[in-house]
Simulated assay, not measured.
Amino acid sequence: MRAILRPTPAAREPRRSRSARPVALAAALALAVTSACGNGAPSDEGTGPGENDRTGSPPGEPSAVASDLEVPWGMDFLPDGSALVTERDSGRVLRVTPEGDTREVGAVTDAEARGEGGLLGLAVPRDAGERPYVYVYYTTGSDNRITRMRYDPDDGLGDEEVLVDGIPSASFHNGGRLAFGPDGMLYATTGDAGEGQRAQNPDSLGGKILRMTPEGEPADGNPGGDLVHSQGHRNVQGLAWDDQDRLFASEFGQDTWDEINLVEPGNNYGWPEVEGTGGGGDYTDPLLTWTPEEASPSGAAIAGGSLWVAALRGQRLWEVPITGDGGDPLGEPREHYATEFGRLRTVDAVPDGEGLWLTTSNRDGRGQPEENDDRILTVPLQE
């Protein structure tokens, strides 16, 4: 029987409960709850600005680095401080400098934009030289796949090499985030593509976090000897590691709870049997939960001692302090810029760690675009 927690008056106060699975050492935090519809219009309800004030200085005022983009989705920085950015609907890959110079360096012609699908994640290896491989995740007419291309500063992107294909696809729940971990391995998030049982099926690549070598082979230490690092995910779109090499992932819930999970190899995060906490010994509880109207969390990054999460339906940037406590690693969330910039998709820490780049997603079919949307914003992190 499916065990999904439903909002109750008691859940309106922060709560903490330990996962029954010892490896999780997780704390669950439920914020203010209202009735929610997972695919509905953004709500103005939820915690209001100023209710979770920082103990230190807040992040500074965002300013636009680039504008008039078509649903910027994936982003990663090059050694020179510029970033490569994917556009979900156009299939273009752009190079954006800190000064705002923007130019197309290539396109993924096989990417098919339909619903939430299209050209999604992008990652550059951490030790990238001047001509690195660039890794992308995208939707075709039949699947999601991961490929790589050599990038040349003068000539742009070269020919594609397919690393992984056959990842389930649909017009929604495609996952799509790519990131290189501190172990040098490539991590990829996949969605359940609308069929929840894929997340529990060990023979499906759907509803998983994958871990692979830069050549697309299963990484050493993967629990089953295949590509799967963890399972039981509905639709993860954010990955970030702290300075202890702990992996945090942001995950879309259905109607009740969005999640931040501490991802450990071999763990099962419960979908579709569990949404939020309460799965018991077979499943790992999230560290933190939000209602979908407060969050619908997409990209994640760590900088300045906090986990930063971009919220789509919630239209705000969440800051979650990292405590350093192994048993309770996350503090109380603090919100910023609620409804100021609309839907927020991707957040990444700039190479010097003194700021963030943040993308809007108001042209994705669910937002209300304003003049110059979509944009990449730079956010200074003040002392």
Rank of each mutant, 00 (worst) to 15 (best):
V236W: 10
V33S: 09
N235W: 10
G324A: 09
I376H: 02
D243N: 13
L247I: 11
E13I: 03
T97Y: 05
G181R: 00
M1Y: 07
S306A: 15
E251S: 12
G115R: 03
L312V: 03
W271Y: 15
G181S: 04
G196M: 08
E275H: 06
Q237A: 03
V350C: 07
Y138H: 13
R334F: 04
F252V: 03
G115Y: 01
G353D: 09
Q200S: 11
T256A: 14
E99S: 15
G365A: 08
R103A: 12
E340D: 15
E340S: 13
P292G: 05
G342K: 02
R363E: 01
P265L: 03
S298Y: 00
S296T: 14
W73A: 06
E45W: 08
F172C: 02
G221V: 12
A193L: 12
S67F: 14
E294M: 12
G196N: 01
F77N: 07
L330Y: 06
D127W: 08
V309N: 02
D285Q: 10
E45L: 15
Q254V: 11
T359H: 01
A20R: 11
Y133T: 07
R126Q: 13
R126V: 14
E335H: 09
A3P: 00
P182L: 04
A301H: 00
E332R: 10
T8H: 10
R313S: 04
P153Q: 09
E275V: 01
T55S: 13
D348N: 00
S17W: 11
D154R: 15
S17Y: 08
F248R: 02
T140C: 09
T339E: 13
S361F: 12
V124N: 04
R150N: 09
W271G: 05
G191Y: 15
M1T: 14
H233D: 13
T147N: 02
P125L: 13
P58I: 02
G56D: 09
G216P: 08
A301C: 07
A188I: 00
E340Q: 15
D143I: 12
N222I: 11
A26I: 03
G365P: 08
D53W: 09
A10T: 02
